[in-house]
Every structure is written in structure tokens, then in C-alpha cells.
């Protein structure tokens, strides 16, 4: 083990202290405030009243839109995390090959990661505008389309676009985490597998995936959290319209808090979301760590 001797029992905690303090004050404390608010009456103008024994939570569960929104959130998280993991994995496999211009390609793949989500979302919002968006412009001027297409004909399509943008901005993170894993794999494993007569798929299943799994686990947990909490894409492109049909939980609670002035319900929803995340991310982590140990 790589440890060094410790002089006092409390020494490690001293090392942790700055970080612990910073997070306690600026992350944990607001969490506490949110928990407290979720059980208080909050007036429309935002004045906090007294404890109201879970009335906010009851209001959330009674809200007919809540079901739709939870469904959307599930679709959003599963599709974005799932597809971006798959596509990111493929991208990483490709970027790990030797080819002409590999350096350039790797640099380009980093781009979406380095760009603010608000900006990405605004650009895509402009791209898919049917009346004057750039997608129509390019396709018409390149001669691929004859007439302008309404790229957001129904809300289902709009939601699909939002998921697409979500996947688009998530791929680089997955790709580079997996790439990192791939690069740390010893060539000797593959050579051994080749000697054993293993083909591409066998090597993938028995060498690549098991060895990449640790990086993939951490990355997927972080992704679940980030994607679940992702706000600017949906807020910029549809604002949840029509009638919450494209809302996810985070945009929904933002609208509840700041458009409908129902901060009580909104904070209650944050707490619910927190609980869901804890369960999902926790369960995923436990399951994959067990697999690793095996």
C-alpha cells in the first residue's frame, strides 16, 4: 500500500478540514436550508412562514403534471446516460486507433465539453428553428432539401431533440474517461487474446470491458447526477412547453419556483429529486462495485 506514516491520529482529519469546511458551508448548509424550506409555508412573494407538516410534499404528489414530469425525467436520464455511454464508448474505441489526424480528432471531440451548456443549448435552439434555423439553411443550400422542414413539428420531436443535445454534450466526458481506461490497458492482454484466437467481439467482452469498467462506473454515476440535474438545455429550447410535456424535474421545479411562485412545492420537489438520485446512483455504485469485486 502506498501509505505514509501518520504522526497523530487526528492528522488526516486536519488535511481534510479545508475541503470539509468549504463543502459544509457552501453545499451542505444550503441543502439544510432547502430541507427546512420544503416543510415550511412560503408565500408567493417568497416570505417564509411556519412549519406546515409536509403540505408541500402532498401538493407535489397531487399535482397531475408530476406524473408526466417524472416519466419525462426517466426517459431523459435513461436515454441520455445510456446512449451517451454507448456512443462515447464507440468514440473512445475509435479514438484509440491509430489514424491520420488522430490528434486533431481528439482535440475536436473535446469541444462540446469545453462549452457552456447555455451556449450549446442556444445554438441548437437556433439550429432547429423551422422558420429561419441553420439546419434548414444548410440543407437547403446544399441541395439536400427542397423546402424548409419544421424540425420541431410535435413536442415528442422537440423532446427528442433535447435528448439529442443532451447526448451530444455528454459524449466527450464518457469518451475521454473510457479512452483513459483504454490507454491504461496493457497491450500484452490483447496479444495473449490474439494468440488464443479471440476475435474482435471476444476481446471486447473479455478484455476491454472488464478493464474499462472502473472508469466507466465513476463516469456513469457522475453522469446520472449531472444529467438528472441538467437544466439549461430544456429551459432554453422549450421551457417545458406545451403544458409540461417536455419538462424534466429540474426545469419543472424551476418553473414552479420562479414562474408560478410556488417555492414550497419547488423545494419539496428538490428533496424528492435528491432522494431519487441517492437511491439510483447509490444502487448503481453498489451493483457495479460488487461486479468488480467478483
Amino acid at each position: 500500500m502506498n501509505s505514509i506514516p501518520i504522526r497523530h491520529k487526528w492528522e488526516p482529519y486536519l488535511w481534510l478540514l479545508p475541503s470539509l469546511l468549504l463543502m459544509s458551508i457552501f453545499v451542505v448548509f444550503p441543502i439544510g436550508i432547502v430541507f427546512k424550506l420544503s416543510m415550511s409555508d412560503i408565500s408567493k412573494a417568497g416570505i417564509v412562514g411556519s412549519w406546515n407538516s409536509f403540505a408541500n410534499f402532498r401538493a407535489v404528489f397531487r399535482d397531475p403534471a408530476f406524473g408526466t414530469v417524472m416519466m419525462n425525467t426517466a426517459v431523459w436520464v435513461v436515454s441520455v446516460v445510456g446512449l451517451s455511454t454507448l456512443l462515447g464508448f464507440i468514440t473512445a474505441m475509435v479514438l484509440n486507433q491509430k489514424f491520420l489526424g488522430r490528434k486533431v480528432a481528439r482535440s475536436i471531440v473535446v469541444f462540446p465539453w469545453a462549452t457552456s451548456l447555455v451556449i450549446q443549448a442556444s445554438v441548437w435552439n437556433y439550429i432547429i428553428k423551422g422558420e429561419y434555423g441553420n439546419l434548414n439553411n444548410v440543407l437547403l443550400n446544399l441541395g439536400i432539401l427542397r423546402g424548409a422542414v419544421n424540425w420541431r413539428a410535435t413536442y415528442q420531436i422537440e423532446f427528442a431533440w433535447e435528448c439529442g443535445v443532451g447526448i451530444f454534450v455528454t459524449i466527450p466526458f464518457v469518451a475521454f474517461t473510457v479512452l483513459a481506461g483504454l490507454q491504461s490497458i496493457d497491450e500484452a492482454y490483447y496479444e495473449a487474446a490474439t494468440v488464443d484466437g479471440a476475435g474482435f467481439w471476444k476481446k471486447l467482452r473479455h478484455v476491454t470491458i472488464p478493464l474499462v469498467r472502473p472508469s466507466l462506473t465513476v463516469c456513469t454515476v457522475l453522469n446520472i447526477i449531472y444529467v438528472f440535474n441538467s437544466f439549461p438545455i430544456i429551459y432554453t429550447i422549450t421551457k417545458g412547453a406545451p403544458a409540461n410535456k417536455t419538462d424534466t424535474m429540474v426545469t419543472f421545479l424551476y418553473m414552479r419556483a420562479f414562474y408560478d411562485n410556488q417555492k414550497g412545492a419547488a423545494t419539496a420537489m428538490s428533496v424528492i429529486g435528491f432522494a431519487i438520485l441517492c437511491v439510483c446512483a447509490g444502487a448503481y455504485m453498489v451493483i457495479s462495485m460488487r461486479k468488480e469485486e467478483r
Binding site: L16, L20, M23, I25, F26, V27, V28, F29, P30, I31, G32, I33, V34, L37, V221, L222, I225, F228, N229, S230, F231, V250, L253, Y254, A257, K263, A266, T267, S270, G273, F274, L277, C278, A281, M285
Partner: peptide, 23 residues
Amino acid sequence: FLGFVIMSQMFSPVVLLVGISRL
């Protein structure tokens, strides 16, 4: 501590807006 660190990631800033601004 590791658990604490991961937990601290689970609240999106959007969700914590009200709390953060009060703090």
C-alpha cells in the same frame, strides 16, 4: 468522506438556488 463528497454532488445548483442565495 467519499460518500459525503458524492452526496454533495447530488443537488444541482438549480435545486439549491433558494438555499444558496439565502446563505
